[in-house]
């Protein structure tokens, strides 16, 4: 097994320490940071995403794998910046106003980072203006909205309207997700995409940014 495969394997097992050590080894061997990221970390994370989508693995494995990825990615970050490597896209994400649930949101964030996105996490109970201001200021191509409560999901429409009012609606794609949501709801409020799970959300985001 080569070093990148080993990184991917350890990441899939959620062995954070192993990933960290192997990424450090790769850096010491002067492998390019972009290669370590793509062929080690992101390739492992994409297998995790696929398995998650197919119900072979579950939230805990995704979380531990993502934690392992973050340990490795932290080592690569300064090197990637130095080499002028850009993220494949930029998004801001948060749970809408009145809602404190963040597990689903965190999973989407991890899956998107696993596809090489730069993701700004706005946390939970986020006001519509915060989404729009962040997207404008940080040049995000995507705004991701999460809600777990039927009583708070109507807040997603407020974000769509706020983006229109701020004049950035044509510059950002708005993606929505969460247990009570449907594709019909997404269309009704004028959002761009609904994703039924975190892995699909990341795939959709890649689609938007490569279009």
């Amino acid at each position: 097994m080569n070093l990148f495969e080993e990184i991917s394997e350890n990441l899939q097992k959620g062995n954070a320490r192993g990933v960290k050590d192997l990424v450090q080894q790769a850096i010491d061997e002067r492998r390019p940071a972009k290669e370590i990221l793509d062929e080690g970390l992101l390739s492992g994370m994409s297998i995790i995403g696929e398995k998650f989508k197919n119900n072979e693995i579950f939230v805990p494995e995704v979380l531990v794998a993502a934690r392992a990825m973050n340990m490795g990615a932290a080592l690569l970050k300064p090197l990637l910046k130095e080499a002028g490597v850009k993220a494949c896209g930029k998004a801001c994400i948060g749970t809408v106003k009145g809602d404190l649930h963040d597990i689903g949101k965190n999973l989407v964030k991890m899956m998107m980072e696993g596809k090489g996105f730069e993701v700004i996490d706005l946390g939970t109970d986020v006001a519509p203006e915060t989404f729009v201001e962040t997207a404008a200021k940080e040049n995000c191509q995507i705004i991701c909205l999460s809600a777990l409560l039927t009583t708070t999901m109507s807040g997603m429409e407020d974000v769509v309207k706020a983006a229109e009012a701020a004049g950035i609606r044509d510059k950002v794609k708005i993606m929505v997700g969460g247990a009570p949501l449907t594709d019909a709801f997404c269309r009704k409020i004028g959002a761009d995409a609904y994703a039924p799970d975190a892995a699909s959300a990341a795939d959709k985001a890649v689609e938007f940014c490569s279009a």
Partner: peptide, 16 residues
Amino acid sequence: LGGSAAFAEHYMNSMM
């Protein structure tokens, strides 16, 4: 617990 980093960390570790 909502938004607590400690809870999120414990949650991740407690699912297995």
